[in-house]
Design a protein around this nucleic acid. Structure first.
Length: 273
DNA sequence: GTCCATGTTCTTTA
DNA sequence: CTAAAGAACATGGA
């Protein structure tokens, strides 16, 4: 569930509670969600103060001072919440940070998420530019290098960092670009349009505190509202908001892909089929 | 029982 | 060799 807008919202709702506060104790219930496995995370967090919390791509990066950092990735079903100590723990709670008056709990049924200890290492390996601040030329450079269709390329975190299935579909609709166009066939002007569309969609989604389809909630337990404003995602068969013709669902790279065949013109090679 | 799901990484194929 | 497609991971809901 968590793409850039959801992760950003979790960070913003967590920040006022934890920055400047000292961790009294940390508890890891499952060793297999930690990388590197066996590093003594809880001992390293014991009695330390949280100095910062930031988002990078879909990662929630905690700074401890001394340049020591770790990050949590929510995967598909991860939640990071502020809870009173006496509140019952959600099923599949794998990690808890205990503060004086509350706890930060990480739960994740599917366990696609996890915790990564960075220490003083960089966290940028193999991540593309941040979409909210990237230049169109950065996106153009990455897209020019691949023949993969644009939908697939935008899901690749080394091309641009933070988009997922929902926001790629929404951004391609906003830009009027068909999901099956080969990336390296897009012109400079189209990529500028796409860059602007990505930023517009992400800013709008952050303003509405992300999309809650099923699992997502912010650190306070509140759902997002942007799902009400999705124009194409999970709306196959419904009329396009622009042209009223029915939206379509196809499968690309094993992922559901939603678009308007009229507003997002097909590449010539597909048209013949 | 079946299929599907907001993500990433490893393996296989071309 | 590299790029890209496909499978795998684990759980729950429809």
């Amino acid at each position: 569930m968590p793409e850039l807008p959801e992760v950003q919202t979790v960070v913003e709702t967590l920040r006022p509670h934890i920055v400047g506060r000292r961790i009294r104790r940390a508890e890891l219930m499952r060793g297999d969600i930690l990388t590197p496995t066996g590093c003594d995370l809880c001992a390293r967090l014991d009695r330390r103060t949280i100095r910062s919390i930031e988002r990078r791509a879909k990662r929630i990066v905690f700074g401890l001072g001394d340049d020591n950092r770790f990050y949590i990735h929510l995967g598909m079903t991860g939640r990071l919440t502020i809870d009173p100590p006496d509140a019952p723990r959600r099923l599949h709670t794998h990690f808890v940070l205990f503060f004086e008056a509350f706890e930060v709990r990480f739960s994740d049924p599917r366990r696609f998420g996890g915790i990564w200890w960075l220490g003083t290492e960089a966290d940028d390996d193999r991540l593309g530019p941040e979409p909210l601040t990237m230049r169109s030329s950065q996106l153009a450079r990455a897209l020019g290098k691949t023949a993969r269709v644009i939908k697939t390329a935008l899901l690749d975190q080394s091309v641009v960092a933070g988009l997922g299935n929902i926001y790629v579909d929404e951004a391609l609709f906003e830009a009027g670009i068909h999901p099956l166009i080969p990336s390296n066939e897009l012109g400079g002007e189209e990529i500028e349009t796409l860059t602007r569309a990505i930023k517009r969609i992400l800013r709008r989604a952050i303003r509405h505190r992300g999309s809650t389809l099923r699992d997502y909630m912010d650190a306070n337990g509140d759902a997002g509202a942007f799902q009400k404003l999705h124009r194409v995602y999970d709306r196959a068969g419904q009329p396009c908001a622009r042209c009223k013709r029915p939206l379509v669902r196809i499968v690309v790279a094993g992922r559901s892909t939603h678009f308007c065949p009229a507003c997002q013109p097909a590449p010539a090679i597909i048209e013949q089929c």
